[in-house]
Computed example of a mutant assay.
Amino acid sequence: MIRWKLAVIMAECNISNKELAVLTGMTPRSISRLKVRRRFTRIDESTLNALCKALNCQPGDLLVYEEEKPDIK
């Protein structure tokens, strides 16, 4: 499973949704939607590029692979 860490990176950078929206050219609502994701689904290359530029990070800082553990019942 790919885990999305935008909320963690934003907290580390001490940046708000509104500030990141201004830096990326996105709306605060779009940032909020991206931020609350826990699992990574799909992201446009230009969005990822804008986030990395604004947060001064690499795509690998925003995405983490974790092996899924099977549910034992």
Rank of each mutant, 00 (worst) to 15 (best):
M1I: 00
I2A: 08
I2D: 12
R3F: 12
K5F: 09
K5T: 04
K5V: 00
L6W: 01
L6A: 04
A7K: 10
V8N: 06
V8M: 06
I9T: 02
I9R: 01
A11N: 10
E12H: 00
I15E: 06
S16G: 02
S16Y: 00
N17I: 05
N17T: 05
K18V: 12
E19D: 07
A21E: 02
A21G: 07
A21H: 00
A21T: 01
V22Y: 14
V22L: 15
V22F: 11
T24K: 02
T27E: 13
P28Q: 05
R29F: 09
I31V: 15
I31M: 04
I31K: 02
S32N: 13
S32K: 11
S32H: 11
S32M: 08
L34H: 10
L34N: 07
L34V: 06
L34W: 09
L34C: 05
K35Q: 13
R38G: 10
R38D: 12
R39L: 13
T41G: 07
T41I: 14
R42S: 11
R42K: 14
R42I: 09
I43M: 13
D44A: 10
D44R: 15
E45Y: 08
E45D: 11
S46R: 09
L48N: 06
L48C: 06
N49P: 04
N49G: 09
N49M: 12
N49L: 15
A50H: 04
A50Y: 01
L51K: 02
C52K: 03
K53C: 07
K53E: 12
A54C: 03
L55C: 03
L55R: 02
L55P: 06
N56E: 12
N56M: 07
N56T: 08
Q58K: 13
Q58H: 13
D61C: 05
D61P: 04
D61F: 01
L63F: 10
L63I: 12
L63Y: 02
V64Q: 15
V64I: 08
V64M: 12
Y65I: 07
Y65E: 11
Y65W: 13
Y65C: 06
E66H: 12
E67H: 11
E67A: 14
E67N: 11
E67P: 09
E67V: 10
E68W: 08
E68P: 08
K69F: 09
I72G: 09
I72M: 10
I72D: 15
I72Q: 14
K73T: 11
K73H: 14
